[in-house]
C-alpha cells in the first residue's frame, strides 16, 4: 500500500521564468494554480495530493489586461470579475460579457480565470464558444520559448490540451471584431444560476446589404471539445430570413455529436441546438 504522507509545497513565484522552472522541477507532481476553482475539485476527485502547487497569481506579468489597436490581451491571472469590470470590453463584446457572467457566482468569478477555463478544457467551459468564434490565440511559454496556438488546436479533448510539461499559458489574445459584427451567447442549464451548460452557443455574424457576409458559430457541451461549426460557407451571400435560418440550423446540427449524461440526453441536446440557433439569429433579426 502506498502511503501518501508527503505534504504539498505551496509556491509563489514572482516571475514567469521562475514558475516554469518550478514546473520543470516537480514535473507531473507540480500543478499551476490560478483561481483554483477547477483544480481543487479535480484533486479531490482524483484523490491526488500534488508535490507542489505553483500559485501564479502573484506574477505581475500574468495580470496583463490590455486593449490596444483592437487587440485584446488577457493574462493568465486575470479573473472573470476583473474582465467584467472593463467597460470597454463589455461594450464591444456584450456576448462575451454574457458568457462570463453565466459562469458560477460572484465568489467563483472573483477567483477563477479565463485562461483557467481554457486550461481545464471542459466541453462545458462557458467562455470557450465565444473565444472560438473570436478566433482567440493561446500563448504559451516555457520561460524562454513562446508558442501561439489557435484555441481549437490548443484544446484537444476533455481535459487534454496542447501544452508541454514545462509550459505555462501566459495569456490569450484576440482581435476585436469589426463594428459590423454582432455576437450572441446562449446557454441552457438545469437551473438559472450556478449551472453547468447542457448546451451552449456563441455566434458572430455580419451582414452586407442584408445578406450574410460572415458567420461563425461555436457549440459547447455537444462533443468532447467545443465545436466550431463547419460548412457555413454555403450560406454566405444569402439573405438572413427564416429559410436561411433553417439551413444554418441543419448545418449546426450536423456538426454536433452529443452524448447522454446525467444532465440530459443526446436527443435533447440536438433539439436544443436547433432552438438556440434559431433564437440567437432571430434576436439579431429583431435588432436590425
Amino acid at each position: 500500500m502506498e502511503v501518501k504522507s508527503e505534504r504539498t509545497e505551496y509556491l509563489f513565484p514572482k516571475l514567469i521564468d521562475e514558475a516554469c522552472k518550478l514546473k520543470e522541477k516537480f514535473g507531473a507532481g507540480g500543478r499551476f494554480l490560478a483561481g483554483g476553482t477547477d483544480l481543487l475539485l479535480l484533486l479531490d476527485q482524483l484523490n491526488e495530493k500534488p508535490k507542489a502547487l505553483i500559485d501564479i497569481n502573484r506574477i505581475p506579468e500574468l495580470k496583463t489586461f490590455t486593449i490596444s489597436d483592437s487587440l485584446v490581451t488577457i493574462g493568465a491571472a486575470v479573473t472573470y470579475n476583473e474582465i467584467l469590470e472593463n467597460n470597454e470590453l463589455c461594450q464591444q463584446l456584450p456576448f462575451l460579457e454574457k458568457a462570463i457572467r453565466s459562469i458560477g457566482g460572484v465568489q467563483v468569478r472573483n477567483m477563477a480565470t479565463l485562461v483557467g477555463n481554457i486550461a481545464n478544457a471542459s466541453p462545458a467551459g462557458d467562455s470557450l464558444p465565444a473565444l472560438y468564434v473570436l478566433k482567440a490565440k493561446v500563448c504559451t511559454t516555457d520561460g524562454t520559448n513562446q508558442r501561439e496556438i489557435a484555441i481549437e488546436d490548443f484544446i484537444l479533448g476533455v481535459r487534454k490540451i496542447n501544452l508541454k510539461p514545462n509550459e505555462l499559458i501566459s495569456h490569450i489574445k484576440f482581435k476585436l471584431p469589426k463594428p459590423a459584427f454582432h455576437g450572441e451567447f446562449e446557454k441552457i442549464g438545469l437551473r438559472k444560476a450556478m449551472a453547468i451548460s447542457l448546451v451552449s452557443l456563441a455566434l458572430l455574424i455580419s451582414l452586407d446589404e442584408l445578406k450574410i457576409d460572415e458567420i461563425y458559430i461555436a457549440l459547447g457541451s455537444v462533443a468532447p471539445t467545443v465545436v466550431n461549426v463547419g460548412g457555413l460557407d454555403a450560406i454566405i451571400g444569402k439573405p438572413l430570413n427564416q429559410k436561411t435560418i433553417a439551413e444554418i440550423v441543419a448545418i449546426a446540427a450536423n456538426n454536433a455529436k452529443p452524448i447522454d449524461d446525467v444532465r440530459g440526453s443526446a436527443e435533447y441536446r440536438r433539439m436544443a441546438i436547433t432552438g438556440m440557433v434559431k433564437r440567437s439569429l432571430n434576436k439579431f433579426i429583431d435588432k436590425n
Binding site: 504539498t8 470579475n81 477567483m111
Partner: peptide, 20 residues
Amino acid sequence: TILLDGKAVNSCLIPAMRAH
C-alpha cells in the same frame, strides 16, 4: 463566503497557504 483582500470568495476553494 469570506472577503479575501476585500472580495467575496468561497473559502472552501482556497488552499490555506493561498491566503499568505
